[in-house]
Design a protein around this nucleic acid. Structure first.
Lengths: 253, 253
DNA sequence: CTAATAGTGTCTCTAAGACAGTATTCC
DNA sequence: GGAATACTGTCTTAGAGACACTATTAG
């Protein structure tokens, strides 16, 4: 009741003929798992105020497209990737966060597995896949509030791993259980027992479906792992709960 | 690689001197539990294109304030409430969603318990507390895409109930365990056994702290319930997991 | 007194962690 | 052969659901 003006039913700032103008950008945090670690795609731009800094790829939303379409377009333009899992996770509008203008950024994350083809759509020297721990550890400089945006994206992916099918977006159309497990281990930063993981995923029908084929072992050998594809269960969440505390029941590991 | 233009390293639409202008509004979905049901605060406006429709309260963001500040200001202006739990959950920018202009809306939810004082800051006839099931059941008409925004808000609160301290925002500074339990029951739409709920909340230190005082029983009598206040544990999530399926172990209820 | 609500004590089952042991590959 | 990886089986425990039972109020 402090800054009120008369006629409470219709606030005066709802007059559509007069309002502050903002630029709206859509940024896409591209995430993938490589070498058992979570990585993020960052770009370098040669123009001020970006010199010497890494940035999350993005660009202006156009009036004739939805936010989702803008995110999909930006992802295609900057990485050449189509058909990835895209999810909105936040909006950022602090005054002065971009010194050039009043801008509100809507942020998405995209999850990929085709690591080789990332950065194929943009200048190779201007884009790079960086470990998230590296990007958030302050070892490289991120533009504006992009460190906060990246932190929020990773936090959201951690939550979504238990609540959505995002884990299956990190792997290909067919995958081994070790590949799927490494996604949880990289994103949650935990070690999961292979036997228990297998039981959690296979105990109920519909999480993973065996294809009958087997993957070729790596250079170090090992028994060839069976290949699975994702089932229908993922529509309503994932098979694993986020590990809370470590109870240290019996073992010493 | 379909809609690309030359110079891939610096996309042409990143030129800061030319970009489409948008209005940015901040809408606040005000939620509370009344009579064991989740309710939402909706407003009526007398100006086109709002006639005969209910809307989620909100207004334009100003360039000199953050999105969080704008949400807090709008909540104060429209409901007279200060200090509520406010959380951002989505951004909406479909073309034509507001026929008057290009607008991107950043949506927040606010959780209250002072049901009586809601709508104190705005015209009483133009604001009302409506059961969420009623608002989403198509029985009243919501403006624009506000039904989708409300649906997303409720879905987010359901998730946050297990992951954050939002449950404690639905109740007052002191509360009985039955009050806290009714929050989970109303938001999740489940029945929780009072004995098991008590055990989950009291088994670990720090969720609820006894005050030594007791609440007065209702008109129907009953043993006076002990009053608790929220502990420090809520900073990292809530004590209850979202109930997945109902296993029907032993009982028939 | 009865009805209603708060709180206690047990029983049971399931999901998850911690292994040991077996199978199949590469070198 | 040994090292590495995939897979199977088993033991144990924490947590959650389903009660039965006791305590304290209003009417």
């Amino acid at each position: 009741m402090s800054t009120r003006t008369p006629d409470p039913g219709v606030p005066p700032d709802y007059d559509p003929s007069q309002f502050p103008a903002f630029a709206v950008t859509v940024d896409v945090v591209v995430l993938t798992v490589r070498d058992a670690r979570l990585h993020v795609l960052l770009v370098r731009r040669g123009v001020p105020p970006f010199e010497g800094m890494w940035a999350i790829p993005g660009g202006f939303k156009r009036p004739e497209e939805t936010l989702d379409e803008a995110a999909r377009r930006e992802l295609l333009e900057e990485t050449g990737v189509e058909g990835a899992s895209l999810r909105q996770f936040g909006a950022y509008g602090d005054p002065g966060r971009d010194p050039r203008m009043n801008v509100v950024t809507v942020a998405y994350f995209a999850v990929l597995r085709e690591v080789d083809r990332i950065a194929g759509g943009t200048d190779a020297a201007a884009a790079g896949l960086v470990p998230v721990s590296y990007a958030l550890g302050g070892e490289i400089q991120l533009a504006f509030d992009h460190a906060r945006i990246l932190r929020d994206a990773v936090e959201r992916v951690r939550v979504d791993l238990a609540l959505t099918d995002v884990a299956t977006s990190f792997v290909g159309p067919t995958f081994t259980l070790a590949e799927l497990r490494s996604v949880y281990e990289a994103v949650w930063g935990v070690h999961l027992d292979g036997a228990n993981f297998r039981r959690s995923v296979l105990s109920e029908e519909g999480w993973v479906v065996p294809t009958g084929r087997r993957a070729r072992p790596g250079a170090a050998g090992g028994k060839p792992a069976e290949l699975y594809r994702a089932g229908r269960m993922w529509q309503h969440g994932g098979p694993l709960r986020y590990p809370q505390a470590t109870p240290t029941t019996r073992g010493t590991r």
